[in-house]
Design a protein around this nucleic acid. Structure first.
Lengths: 329, 329
DNA sequence: TTGTAAGCGTTATCAA
DNA sequence: TTGATAACGCTTACAA
């Protein structure tokens, strides 16, 4: 591995001059610069990041702390985060939390810190993760893709509550009165917002609220719930907290001999890529996960540079009307 | 940020002794060790990775080079890779290729090298990526999750060809004779293996082979293909190269008034989480993507340590029979 | 515009 | 079992 001194020797200058070329220092003679550049190319020299990081105490590294289980949304956001960060000259390291115990979270943050990250993006939608995070003196800026109630300052969450209201209102406008909610697991921020949106919409319409069913985000659970729910016929519509559960739910209803949307209307949330193609095509709420990721990076880099975060609005959710919800008969 | 010298001062030893404790050097008095450990805890000292990397010229960093578009399979593998690598004390940096031009690939590898990765895991299933990789003197070990024909030595690919044969054979055993293949895009290794498996199964059964249709992995394309195919009624079964296209295909057929599996049988590939819940439940080929990722890391670390790679078999694909394929009427 | 010297925080080497 | 000293490859200051 050639070092900066090898380049200097070949170009006939001091290693300091090479450093200046590398860092685009203004005062350097064009000809010298070219000589150095040539030498760099000739030796296939690459600056040693470790040495650079040692002296500047900056690695230009962003850590992603994720506690999601490989679902579509977070994955799409992570890809966007990674791309946006690299565009700005940062590299990215990802750390998936195997579980969300306080110890695991603390350990993960410490690990990221040990790796000298300059900032952290958190995709850890469990409320308890936020408690732990808030209790830690992290020492580097961080941004979250979710908002806990009474939130941390830095987050770029979309308005999930509003999305859930839109979904529920859609069912109300179709004439449904007895609307169930299949929610996400306790302790999940998203599950909570979506449930609150549902409850709000019902209250606004002076409709009875029925205690939500706690699911676990999986299609398997949706299927199970569909089978169970088919027995009680006290509802005509369900708002599922995500598409996977909605699809499982349709499966369960189908197995029980119920037709969607003739007998039951369903609305999902997320707009995953298959949503438009399942039978019946799923009415759902679209979230722009990639955009979310990009905003997170913009926000993080702003605070890394000491700029004020732009007061941009988070991306708005949008209702996508397909065929799984129909007027009440 | 406390340094090793601060710890040394507090513990009343030399910084070298602290270093020994850190690196679990055998000859150190237990009592001294405890004093140092206490000091470390007291100061919340964390070793500076950059300094360590500078002197050892090892960062314990693994790079993931990915050129996939956020599909289920690669994503699951990446999560597993990340976890396995961290367990072994390596951190992980991910780099998504925006496009697969030779320049982009070369740039990405150089970028990873500049970040001082000790090894690279490649999830870049396009044939051309392999050409570029092979032409580069990379200088660090790397492992691929795909096998190009006439392959690179290091890969942990599952036997996709065999999976495709199983899928096709299943249709043949159901009595189908005119079996179509909806393949993945040209230049994709997976697309190629799956297509070859399909062709082989047909040949083995002395059945006519029909030129495959080139898709792009998306459900949208599957939908379009279903609409088009519905016009020509010269087949009774389709083997789709992935589940997303299979689901889109079912949608297209449905729109055209064809019933699956009554009029057409369909088999997919991947076994994505919704496969069991769509209508009709999708017969498909299951691949253990997480296992694949873990093997990739095992392999990479073995060559990093100079060990011989274990001659383990790649994970075997498994046919999952559900309802989208039925006996030919 | 260029060069020289010092130091970043760690590990490796040698000596005690 | 411990300590002193010299790197590692770079950037920052200061001097020429």
């Amino acid at each position: 591995m050639p070092s900066i001194r090898d380049v200097a020797r070949l170009a006939g200058v001091s290693h300091q001059t090479v450093s200046r070329v590398l860092n685009e220092h203004p005062s350097i003679r064009e000809e010298t610069k070219q000589r150095v550049l040539d030498a760099i190319r000739q030796l296939d020299y690459r600056p040693n990041q470790a040495a650079r990081a040692l002296v500047t105490s900056k690695l230009n590294l962003i850590g992603i702390l994720s506690a999601t289980v490989g679902e579509f949304g977070p994955t799409a956001s992570i890809a966007a985060i990674e791309e946006a960060a690299r565009e700005e000259g940062y590299s990215v390291t990802t750390l998936n939390l195997p579980d969300t115990s306080p110890e695991a979270i603390g350990g993960a943050v410490r690990q990221l810190l040990r790796e000298q990250v300059d900032g952290i993006v958190v995709l850890a939608p469990q409320v308890r993760v936020f408690h732990v995070l808030r209790g830690m003196a992290i020492g580097v800026p961080f941004v979250s893709l979710q908002t806990a109630s009474g939130a941390l300052e830095e987050s770029v969450a979309p308005d999930q509550l509003e999305g859930a209201r839109m979904a529920t209102r859609h069912l109300i406008e179709l004439g449904h009165v007895d609307i169930l909610h299949l929610s996400g697991p306790q302790d999940w921020i998203e599950a909570d917002s979506r449930m609150r949106g549902y409850l709000q919409a019902l209250r606004d319409a002076d409709l009875p609220t029925i205690p939500p069913i706690r699911g676990d985000w999986t299609a398997d659970f949706g299927h199970y719930a569909g089978l169970e729910l088919a027995r009680r016929q006290d509802f005509s519509a369900v708002f599922a907290a995500n598409d996977l559960m909605a699809i499982g739910l349709m499966h369960g209803f189908r197995d029980a001999g119920l037709d969607v949307p003739r007998d039951v209307s369903i609305v999902g949330f997320d707009d995953i890529p298959v949503a438009a193609h399942v039978w019946p095509p799923l009415t759902t709420v679209h979230i722009d996960f990639a955009d979310l990721g990009r905003r997170a990076i913009a926000r993080l880099l702003a605070s890394l540079r000491g700029e004020a975060p732009s007061a941009e609005e988070p991306p708005a959710p949008a209702l996508v009307v397909r065929d799984s919800a129909a007027p009440r008969r």
